[in-house]
């Protein structure tokens, strides 16, 4: 039994080291309370809806989100717009379709099954319009950056005047959380930039938090289902482990020895 505890302790230690080694890479990012962290973490529905608004009105003019479809907006565990709302959102976009029976391409209003409309035709067009820098696709952006949500949240609020001695080329901006501090995206957020329909005050901090929450959902659309299932699975395993432990004690009691 002592050995078993030792092994279990070792596994916990291993987890701890992994968690720590990841934490060690982080610079001091701005902190905020994320509703989706923790064993029972869930997305804040209203924040996701507001975040979607920030994404459409601000980010989406340059950043694509190619793995998301409009139907996702109405799915469980996401922003949970009603189906009619999601349909209306989809219909507000012009989608290129075709070829039709005559062999011509045509545009039509978007449907739930359509992917998010991309701001540019292709990567080259995106680069050409942005001074050579490709605005990365945002579908899995949160998972593709070491600091995750904290990094994105901080970056959006990290614009500063460059310190003395740092010279910036045209179209390059100073951001204290960016790797190397130089970023080709200018500061996008300013207080009151969007008008939230739920009356929330659209401060830079609020918008950063909302849009980052939205990006987290975009990268992990099944996060809520995962947390719920995880809790059930682990409780189930613990109960089963206890039962098996007592069965084992019973079986081994037939011979006189320590397990």
């Amino acid at each position: 039994m002592k050995n078993l505890l030792r092994i279990f302790f070792l596994l916990i230690l291993f987890t701890g080291i992994q968690l720590n080694s990841n934490a060690a890479e982080k610079v001091e990012y701005l902190k905020t309370d994320w509703s989706f962290k923790g064993l029972f973490g869930k997305f804040d529905r209203a924040a996701l809806q507001r975040g979607y608004q920030v994404y459409t009105e601000v980010c989406s003019s340059c950043h694509s989100m190619k793995y998301l479809s409009y139907r996702n907006l109405a799915e469980k565990g996401g922003p949970e717009f009603t189906e009619d709302q999601a349909k209306a959102i989809a219909a507000s976009f012009e989608v290129k379709d075709g070829p039709n029976a005559d062999g011509d391409m045509f545009t039509r209003p978007g449907k739930l099954s359509d992917k998010f409309v991309m701001p540019y035709e292709n990567v080259k067009a995106a680069q050409a319009a942005n001074g050579g820098a490709y605005p990365p696709d945002m579908s899995v952006l949160v998972k593709a950056r070491g600091g995750g949500v904290d990094y994105i949240y901080s970056l959006l609020q990290g614009y500063e005047d460059p310190p003395e001695g740092v010279t910036l080329d045209d179209g390059v901006y100073y951001n204290k959380y960016m790797y190397g501090n130089k970023i080709k995206m200018s500061n996008q957020l300013s207080d009151g930039l969007v008008e939230y329909s739920d009356g929330t005050n659209a401060t830079v901090e609020q918008m950063s938090k909302d849009v980052t929450t939205f990006l987290m959902w975009a990268a992990e659309p099944h996060l809520e289902a995962r947390h719920q299932m995880g809790f059930k699975a682990i409780i189930y395993l613990i109960i089963l482990t206890i039962l098996v432990y007592f069965s084992m004690k019973r079986i081994w009691s037939r011979i006189k020895t320590e397990v």
Partner: peptide, 24 residues
């Protein structure tokens, strides 16, 4: 039964990674 018991303990750690920190 002894292997089974140890396996279940192992699976608890495994499940923690899968469900709570899958990308770490």
């Amino acid at each position: 039964i002894k292997d089974g018991f140890a396996l279940l303990m192992f699976m608890i750690v495994f499940a923690f990674f899968v469900f709570y920190t899958p990308n770490i």
